[in-house]
């Protein structure tokens, strides 16, 4: 059962039956474990990884470095909360190093992202400064390479 989470992280579309066979237990035990993980918040959700560049939909993603004034009692958590509540924020991390937080946001257009930074993010009191980096091309995300693997010629070989 110990690799159930790794299996789900790799591919959450695996059926309960597949998972059960792979970890060597019953379907019921797998269902129970997953319910438990969901309840405890170990499993936060299930999502598809999408390469929007391969579709007609316009999409822009930016990585924003944010410098923050930590607050008495709450440290960074209170500011983080004010940032991550915005729907546009895809991910939000507290960082070590030259800046304090990384905020990843996605929008339809460059303007939309710029508007978010200037009107929403920068206006939060504790935010001292921001540096916005637009992502030009996604090569790989969540271990998935965004490129169709070219196939080698296949012919008759018997092994």
């Amino acid at each position: 059962m110990d690799n159930l989470l790794q299996l789900l992280e790799g591919d959450c579309t695996l059926s309960k039956k597949q998972l059960a066979a792979m970890v060597g237990t019953s379907v019921e035990r797998v269902e129970e474990a997953i319910r438990d993980y969901e309840k405890k918040g170990v499993i936060q959700g299930y999502k598809a990884v999408i390469d929007w560049d391969a579709t007609d939909r316009e999409a822009v993603t930016a990585l924003i470095e944010v410098k923050v004034e930590p607050q008495r009692d709450n440290g960074f958590d209170r500011v983080a909360e004010r940032i991550y509540q915005y729907e546009e924020v895809e991910s939000c991390y507290l960082m070590s190093g030259d800046f304090d937080m990384t905020v990843i946001i996605s929008g339809r257009t460059l303007q939309e992202v710029a508007r978010f930074v200037s009107q929403k993010l920068s206006t939060i009191d504790a935010v001292k400064s921001t540096a916005t980096h637009f992502i030009l091309k996604k090569y790989k995300e969540s271990h998935l390479i965004f490129k169709k693997r070219e196939k080698q010629e296949e012919g008759f070989v018997f092994v």
Binding site: N3, L7, K17, Q18, A20, A21, M22, V23, G24
Partner: peptide
């Protein structure tokens, strides 16, 4: 590890 999971799935199947 990967093969073993598939092995058990297919055997059971």
């Amino acid at each position: 590890k990967e093969y073993d999971g598939r092995r058990q799935f297919l055997l059971q199947g």
